[in-house]
Design a binder for these strands. Structure first.
Lengths: 249, 249
DNA sequence: CAAAAATCAATCATAAACATTCAAATTCAT
DNA sequence: ATGAATTTGAATGTTTATGATTGATTTTTG
């Protein structure tokens, strides 16, 4: 049985049963335990399933499908993995900032149940946060229609009254020379100010953003940790400049 | 039975019965008491349920508050008429405040096309305003989950940087003696501050609110105009104290 | 209100599942 | 065919989930 064949087989079985034991797979494929483990690891990295003790399960064990009108962004699976990893850093009693953007949006379900306070400038986040009963403050200011983000001088001023244990932000590009960049100067300003108000600073960047540069500079690469699924050539060079957490689990 | 399988099972059973005994779960899953306890702990941690002595229950104890979507249906027709009339007061170049609430929400479509700037503390309003391409500022502050309104000290402070040609607000009760009242003191505070920042002040009150009194005082009846469909007995007495504009269908 | 019963949180031993390493087998490119 | 690269499976110590036990807490009962 060839590798892709096994992968396909595993996924099909999983979609039928929603959860699968490793032993069952060993029996039904004839492959060894180690091989199946490796298969599951790989499939998890691609966001196709979730490894659990004893086997694997669908990524969303709970019934909920992405709600109506909730358009799946590009690289959705990777973003969810990154978001999940980022959420692990948050502990009870902390206050965090969630930047507007699709990746930070995916963090919300993983923050449920934690005793935290969230500040955000992303309007779509507010609904999700309310759904999960997470105490939330929204930044005041101009509402940028297209991205549903709050920006502007008022937002910057409003922001300065908060302090954060963590901030989680997105960016459209990251490179060694130009650091983090994003297309909109207004949003860049918000991100820049937020960074100065946070004890721990985390950039959530999927692999497609690496070595990209866009219009507005946010901050040098050394100024924040990276949480990413990127495993390319720059990894070593980036590691000299900052912490980088590569999600594999 | 794998962990996520059990979790799924528990949640499904819970959604059916709204409450569940630990013993029942022990029997039906075949797992030990300790394991089920751990499961419940974990699910509670993720906000999926609420632990109670002897088992678990749905997190939202029993009855759902009428969501803003459902509330919109009460007296909907009257509110639309009032909203339309209120919108006529707004002219190009003006800045207005839209209070959180269903009646002011109905104003949004009638504001489309006007060259105005809107400030609001109602989160549902933001979507509608963006849809109609109306430049909008959102008040910063604590998000009151139930009503989707922004309130709190931060909101009050944020508010003070604006000045309005008009403010449009709702209230849950109005009476000659107690003026305007609303159940939530936090929202009342926002309304009160907004009134002091506005050249023209308008209360949008459907007939069902007349001679009602609720917990928090906003302002005396003389401090604002009323736009309403009320045509009852108090009309004459109210007219002695303030302007009242009665919309007729 | 006190005693009894039930449920709970905390701890611990154990067996299963795990990641890791390394050598053998297989596949691939030349 | 031959050497390099990849995949595989077995062996290893380590980690994790589980269920039993304990004493503490809560609820029920008399």
């Amino acid at each position: 049985m060839l590798t892709p064949e096994r992968h396909q087989f595993i996924l099909e079985l999983l979609n039928k049963h929603h959860t699968i034991k490793l032993k069952e797979l060993v029996e039904s494929t004839g492959a060894s335990e180690s091989t199946i483990r490796r298969d599951l690891d790989q499939l998890e990295q691609h966001g196709e399933l979730r490894r659990v003790h004893g086997g694997a399960s669908l990524r969303r064990p709970s019934i909920e499908e992405p709600s109506i009108g909730e358009k799946r962004s590009q690289h959705h699976a990777e973003k969810v993995l990154i978001a999940e990893e980022a959420s692990r850093l948050v502990e009870d009693g902390q206050s965090i900032f969630l930047d507007a953007g699709t990746t930070t949006y995916e963090m919300v379900p993983y923050l449920a149940g934690k005793k935290i306070t969230v500040v955000t400038n992303g309007l779509p986040h507010l609904d999700a946060l309310a759904t999960h009963s997470i105490p939330t403050y929204v930044l005041g200011g101009f509402v940028k229609g297209r991205t549903q983000a709050v920006v502007g001088a008022s937002a910057l001023q409003n922001l300065s009254q908060y302090r954060f244990d963590h901030c989680f932000m997105g960016a459209n590009g990251v490179s060694l020379e130009d650091g983090y960049t994003t297309p909109d100067p207004e949003e860049a300003a918000i991100k820049r100010t937020t960074l100065t108000l946070s004890q721990a600073r985390h950039m959530l960047i999927d692999a497609s953003k690496f070595n990209e540069v866009t219009f507005s500079h946010i901050t040098p690469i050394s100024e924040a940790n990276i949480i990413t699924n990127y495993k390319g050539a720059l990894l070593e060079q980036i590691l000299e400049k900052t912490n980088i957490k590569v999600v594999t689990s």
